Computed example of a mutant assay.
Amino acid sequence: MQRTPGILIFGMVMAPCGWILDLTATVAPNWRTLHQLPGRPTDAVMQQGIWDICLVTETSSSATSTNRPCGQADSTYFGNQIIGIAQGMMVASLIVTLIGLAVAIPGVRCWRENPNWLVAGLAGLLIFCSGVLTIIPIAWYNHIFKNLTSVTTSTDIRVGYSIVLGYIGGIFEVLGGIVMFIGICRCCGGKNRGERRLKDVVPRPNRRSDQQSEPERRVDVPRLSRPRSTSPSSVAYTNRPKNPRTFSVVLV
């Protein structure tokens, strides 16, 4: 069994996180907020999304409570072109992300010997496209959010948290998709094909290796010292010189 490549792990983590943020941005009615509404209490805030509009008011009594009736009608706001486009593209982004994750599961190889780089790369391409489908309506809405309806000059128009979550979720999916798509270079003759097996990285005790190791070669090294012979020599050695000379001394 081999380790799952880091680029696939990165993509499989970033894509679900981006999907959750995109889902929150899609269903939450907080793409923009209207403060200081004419004819409304000073603490009233209008929260507008792409599916619903809510009016939030805070009532001060013995215990502070928040009243948030939703389902406010505003045909002028929902009649803008960006609202219908944002609805379709955000829903399409959520569906494409789920399809990309479903394709990536068999390609990531949590149970196989090697990952299927082609399948994982195609899944990364789908996840990348889902991120683009999120960023386009978010950026478009953020660019024109002050001009969607005619309001008085005293009305304070602010960006809602759904725009921020949509940006972050779309960037997560774009980054995760790009990183996973890089894996296609591996299946097309890239340089990063080599992966090390876990049994080569971490030794496992009490298990025989698949390949039999080569026997060690023995090298005979000649000895420098020769052993002394313990048998008695057949040649007798004396301390006399070989050619002894005899000297005579004459005493007078």
Rank of each mutant, 00 (worst) to 15 (best):
R240M: 02
T24K: 01
Y161E: 03
Q2W: 01
Q212T: 13
G100A: 08
V132Y: 02
I83E: 02
E214D: 13
N192R: 11
M12H: 00
G79K: 09
K146H: 10
P69V: 07
Y77A: 04
I184Q: 09
I163C: 10
P38G: 03
L8M: 13
R3K: 12
I168C: 06
M90R: 01
L21K: 04
P244C: 02
I53A: 08
N206T: 05
P222W: 06
P203K: 11
R112L: 00
I95N: 09
P205T: 08
S233N: 15
N142G: 15
G194T: 04
A25F: 13
R112P: 01
M14I: 14
Y161L: 04
E58S: 15
R207A: 05
Y167P: 00
V249M: 07
A236M: 10
A139E: 15
Y237V: 12
I53H: 10
M46G: 05
T97V: 14
I20Q: 12
V201T: 11
M90L: 10
S225G: 00
L133V: 06
I178H: 03
S65K: 14
S62K: 08
R40T: 09
L23N: 13
C17G: 10
L101F: 11
F10Q: 14
I105N: 06
R109C: 13
S162W: 04
G88K: 11
L175M: 14
W140L: 10
G107L: 00
